[in-house]
Simulated scan of single mutants.
Amino acid sequence: MPRSQTKLKIIEAALALFAKQGVSQVKLQHIADEVGISVGNLAYHFKHKEELIETVHKQGLQALEEVLKAFLEAPGFYDFDRQLSLFYHFSTRYHFCFSCNREIHLHQPQLAASWQDQLHKFFLQICKRLDLYQKKGWLQTEWWDGCYEQLAHNIFLCCCYWLPQQQFVEGASSSMAFRQAIWSQIRPYLSPQGNSLYAQTNQLAH
């Protein structure tokens, strides 16, 4: 097997095992067994587990950057729904970065800090999106000062932690269920115009 192909298989195996078992529970031997190589062969590509975690984490950061770019492209409800789908598929692949963030922070704080920076950008994008929707008349006037900032916080938490919780409780998830969970946070605040746009979006999405 070519070296570059072996390295890619190691990364893919690490991603799958980290997502399934958590970073602390996975040993290099487990990853080597998954790929079908010796630990010595694995160590040729990654000298220690921390190096592999860093590689996978940086790959996740790059993928998250691409998702966040998509959130800046178009402001409509249908576009937002499509962007949520992109985030869902990202999080199914890299959700260990959310669920194991504290663990990574303890051992590799620089990685955790980079991840937190990207997530803060994501939160600010959600805030700006809700502000735009209110200005367009798609959301009602704020029920109280800071109402939509709190809503943005709730959406952010749902985006980050819905998938691990769903898989823990039910063992399965879907893009549609994820998007519905996010929209259920937003729908009570929609104006009549917003409800009409949401109905159109729902028809297009199905």
Rank of each mutant, 00 (worst) to 15 (best):
M1P: 05
M1I: 05
M1L: 14
Q5F: 10
T6L: 09
T6H: 00
L8F: 05
L8P: 00
K9W: 02
I10G: 13
E12N: 06
A14H: 11
A14I: 08
A16W: 15
F18T: 01
K20H: 15
Q21P: 00
V23Q: 02
V23N: 01
L28V: 05
I31R: 03
I31W: 00
A32I: 08
D33K: 08
D33F: 11
V35D: 04
G36V: 11
S38N: 03
V39W: 01
V39T: 13
N41G: 13
Y44T: 13
E50F: 01
E51Y: 06
L52C: 14
T55D: 05
T55W: 02
H57W: 09
H57Y: 11
K58S: 15
G60Y: 08
G60R: 06
L61C: 14
Q62N: 15
A63Q: 11
E65F: 03
E65T: 13
V67P: 04
K69P: 01
F71D: 02
L72N: 12
E73T: 06
E73C: 03
A74V: 04
A74N: 07
P75D: 07
G76A: 12
G76T: 15
F77H: 03
D79N: 05
F80A: 09
F80P: 01
D81E: 14
D81C: 02
Y88R: 06
H89F: 13
S91Q: 10
Y94C: 04
Y94N: 00
Y94I: 10
H95N: 08
H95Y: 14
H95A: 05
H95W: 07
F96I: 14
F96D: 06
F96E: 01
F98H: 06
S99T: 02
N101T: 02
N101H: 09
I104W: 02
Q110M: 15
A113H: 15
W115I: 12
D117K: 01
D117W: 05
D117I: 00
L119T: 08
H120A: 12
H120Y: 08
H120N: 14
K121T: 06
F123N: 11
F123L: 04
C127T: 05
L130E: 00
L130T: 08
D131E: 15
D131A: 13
D131R: 14
L132W: 13
Y133G: 00
K135D: 03
K135P: 09
K135L: 12
K136H: 12
W138G: 01
E142W: 03
E142T: 07
W143A: 14
W144Q: 13
W144A: 08
W144R: 02
W144N: 00
D145W: 02
Y148R: 06
H153N: 11
N154C: 11
F156C: 03
L157C: 09
L157E: 14
Y161D: 09
L163D: 08
E170S: 02
E170Y: 15
G171S: 07
A172G: 03
S173N: 11
S173H: 07
S175N: 04
S175H: 00
A177M: 10
F178Q: 12
S184I: 05
I186A: 11
R187M: 07
R187S: 11
R187T: 13
P188A: 05
Y189D: 03
Y189F: 15
Y189V: 04
P192D: 09
Q193E: 14
G194F: 01
N195G: 13
S196V: 13
Y198N: 09
Q200V: 06
N202R: 11
Q203A: 13
Q203M: 09
Q203V: 04
L204P: 11
L204D: 04
H206N: 12
